[in-house]
Design a protein around this nucleic acid. Structure first.
Lengths: 340, 340
DNA sequence: CAACGTTGTTTCAACGTTGTAAACAGGTGC
DNA sequence: GCACCTGTTTACAACGTTGAAACAACGTTG
């Protein structure tokens, strides 16, 4: 359908390969022919056929980004960063949604060849280290956002243990003593939940405080709301809750306010992710802000290295930065409270 | 790199084309050879090379979805629906972010051929009807979510005028009399803003009520917050505000609560989009819920028709359903109020 | 001036797939 | 035995591109 090199070559009166050379910026083309060819190129409005180019070169110029759900704000924001970072390498990004399920994560790991992307950035939830090690596909792979010990692939994340420690210590520093953790998960070996839990425990232990842990199935508002209901029903409700992500925190906040509690006076709340919602909730949400752009950039750059063939290098761990943002849900100063 | 038809053919002792026939489910293959070939296929774990197939067939099996920003919750949720709907046709989706800018929208319209996607679903913001009509690319195109009059492409959206009318009437029905509209835009001919404004005006006119209109540049929380500040500073502040999308409403809510107002007692707020955030804000947000799945499905199906060659059909308009969800930000019953 | 390197251009083959058309086998009917 | 089906399989070419190698024209060097 579109114009091909053949058409351009015919019009310019040169060979197909010469046109190809001009298109690809090959050095040794005489100014005269180059001018001729470029004239023909723009006259016919030539666009290279990527399928053909990819077939010839064995590359597709596309990478896949597989994450649990696009409509979780954290992942949407992260996706945006990845797409932007990939654009710098002239890569297109195909987004796959795993739903956090083992079955679909497996299918994606296994089916990368189907789509013929050059590489895959996976934000794993269910899949574990041995699964990963056993995969037959040798497409470049980078893991994003979870820690899989001794995994067979490069990995980027923030230091989840330290981040959780920092949040907990922030709450302790504000004088809170009954600090609950909301967001633990049924003991999956992988995942960030155990790491965040570890950081929380370390901080409490360092100050000799007791721990309260509430589990959830998924990191969604509804789960946060439900878990908070359980917490408030306990004989000694917490005076602070560290939620393992912002969505849980926003759900918990909804429950607390609806129950007539003041946030943070009666109960302080903190999350992790720094999604935009938390900047506009009432009260605004204290959180850990991972450097999403850095995460995305490192992931993309690592993938690029793998794809370009530096595959000899053993899998490595990379850590992106984060910082604590103290807002009204712990510091107060906001004007919200429940109707007592 | 991967196994090709050639390898499978060699192993099965048949021709390449026979393997191709088996892979593609061609009817006239004897059970014996089919069995042989299928054995070889699974033994070698064959996966078709999409680049080659696409080159041969002139199709890529991918569509592009171009929208302003992936990290606006409405678009993230919509993307999810589009990806799911596209998956039913075995299409992959490449997401392009326009930032709502004219320049990038133009580049995408013009550059579709670069990526060699089979079709494009565009959620236009800046680009107008005449731009669209002038485009040289003949790739299948469906417009999503905005109304471009007499556009040269199929178009899907909800009935924005009626939706805005419904929200406004909802507010009137609750006894509000000073109802402001938040979210008008500098007179761009295209876009949904004029439509929503029209619906708002119709409803007010039907009840002989005065109008107050506040403009914003972008549909983001921060703009909603700022615009609300301006509204509250006026001599006669509104007792209800219809925000043209949920993000604006959440920003406005933040400002109202921070100013010590009770929502909805002092000022009722309504939005449009039904993003998840609004179900967990305090108070929860009254809104119009467009049927996002239906929007996505219609858009994808239309694109499929265009791609499959029913191009003779003139461009059409399609309307997806919506419904009003009355929540605490207008109905009350929530427990949130500012500190008076 | 012969051998050689450089620059500019072309020819050729191949990437993996599938549509077309043709070849082939095994019938049936006459 | 021949023409004629139907079902099954194959050879060939082509999609648009680019690496490798070949070639021609020229300037440099020994």
């Amino acid at each position: 359908m579109g114009t091909s090199l053949r058409d351009v070559a015919r019009l310019a009166g040169v060979s197909v390969k010469t046109v190809s050379n001009v298109v690809n910026g090959y050095a040794h083309v005489s100014p005269a022919t180059r001018a001729k060819v470029e004239g023909a190129l723009s006259q016919l409005d030539y666009r290279p056929n990527l399928s053909a180019r990819n077939l010839r070169q064995g590359r597709t110029g596309m990478i896949a980004l597989a994450l649990p759900e696009l409509d979780a704000p954290y992942f949407a924001e992260l996706s945006r960063c990845v797409i932007d970072a990939a654009a710098e390498h002239r890569w297109l990004v195909i987004i796959e949604q795993t739903g956090g399920g083992l079955e679909r994560e497996r299918r994606i790991l296994d089916g990368v060849r189907d789509h013929h992307v050059d590489g895959l950035i996976l934000s794993p939830v269910a899949v574990g280290a041995e699964e990963l090690a056993a995969r037959t596909d040798d497409t470049a792979l980078v893991l994003l956002g979870e820690r899989i010990y001794d995994g067979p692939a490069d990995h980027v994340a923030i230091d989840n243990v330290r981040a959780a420690y920092d949040v907990t210590e922030h709450l302790i520093g504000l004088g809170r003593r009954r600090i609950a953790a909301l967001g633990a998960q049924d003991d999956t070996a992988s995942g960030t939940a155990p790491l965040r839990l570890a950081g929380y425990r370390e901080a409490l232990a360092a100050h000799g405080l007791p721990e309260t842990v509430v589990k959830v199935d998924r990191y969604q508002r509804a789960e946060g709301a439900a878990a908070m209901t359980r917490l408030l029903a306990s004989p000694e409700p917490p005076d602070a809750v560290f939620c393992f992500n912002d969505l849980l925190a926003l759900g918990a906040m909804r429950t607390a306010l609806a129950a007539g509690l003041r946030v943070p006076e009666d109960v302080a709340l903190a999350g992790l992710d720094d999604i935009e919602d938390g900047r506009y909730s009432t009260p605004t949400l204290t959180t850990i802000a991972p450097d999403k752009n850095q995460l995305a950039r490192i992931a993309v750059d690592l993938l690029k290295q793998r794809i370009d063939g530096h595959t000899a290098r053993p899998p490595q761990e990379f850590t992106a930065g984060y910082h604590l943002i103290a807002r009204e849900s712990t510091m107060g100063g906001g004007l919200s409270r429940g109707v007592g």
